Simulated assay, not measured.
Amino acid sequence: MAHYTPPKPHYGGQLGLLGLLCMLALTGCMTLADRMPGAMSWLPAMAQPASSHTPVALPVHAVSEADMKAVFIVRFDADPALDPVGKTFRKDAAYAHATYQDWASNRPALKDLKLIRASYSGELILGLPKDSPREADAVLQDIQAMSNLAYAERDVMALPGRKRETQ
């Protein structure tokens, strides 16, 4: 005959409910502390909520794709001068823009092109401003003629039923 063993109690549901109630109580206390200035004065200074809620200003990039006649996706092979551009663009866009401008200043194919963004992989998104006298197809041909180029292409979106705009 089989021996009957009673099932062991399972506390997962009760512990989950207890955790949920603790989080709800903590949220209520923090909301109360935000609405009543002196409610949390008994806490140590490091545990008290911040006294002012000033918005954090995020950096705005001066270059946008909307201001461009054409946008190009470009990657150059093994150029150590460009490594900091991709690696620092998200952290310090001003430094990345300055590094790119310094590097591109003596390359005629990149004349008038502005750095829009850069990726960690070394891919550069370059824009040709609307006021530039150069044509997008000519710029692409000039870039593709550079010796250290991995690839370069226009960043275009194909829309069904529309003819390709050439510039």
Score class of each variant (00 low, 15 high):
D142F: 08
A136T: 00
S132Q: 09
A145H: 01
V139Y: 08
S121E: 10
Y151T: 06
A138E: 14
L115R: 09
E153R: 02
Y151D: 08
S132H: 06
P129M: 12
R134N: 09
L140E: 07
L128I: 14
G122P: 06
E153Q: 07
G127V: 13
N148F: 10
A152D: 12
A145Q: 01
D137K: 15
R117Q: 03
K111R: 15
L113E: 05
Y120P: 13
D155C: 13
R117M: 00
E123H: 06
L126Q: 03
I143T: 11
L126G: 03
N148K: 15
Q144R: 14
E135P: 03
D131L: 02
A118R: 06
I143Y: 09
D155I: 07
L140M: 07
L128D: 12
K130Y: 05
V139T: 13
L115D: 05
P129Y: 12
P133D: 13
A138T: 12
Q141P: 12
D112L: 04
G127R: 12
L126A: 06
R134K: 08
S132V: 03
K114E: 06
D142E: 14
I116T: 04
K114S: 13
S147F: 06
A118E: 02
G127K: 12
K111V: 14
L126W: 00
G127N: 13
S119A: 03
D142N: 10
A136M: 09
D155E: 13
P133H: 08
V139C: 10
L126K: 01
A152E: 12
K111Y: 14
L124W: 05
A145I: 02
L115K: 12
A118Y: 01
R154L: 15
P129H: 13
P133C: 05
Y120I: 14
P129W: 13
M146V: 01
P133W: 04
E123A: 10
D142T: 12
R154V: 00
P133R: 07
D131T: 06
D155F: 11
A118G: 04
K111S: 14
Q141R: 15
D137S: 15
D137F: 15
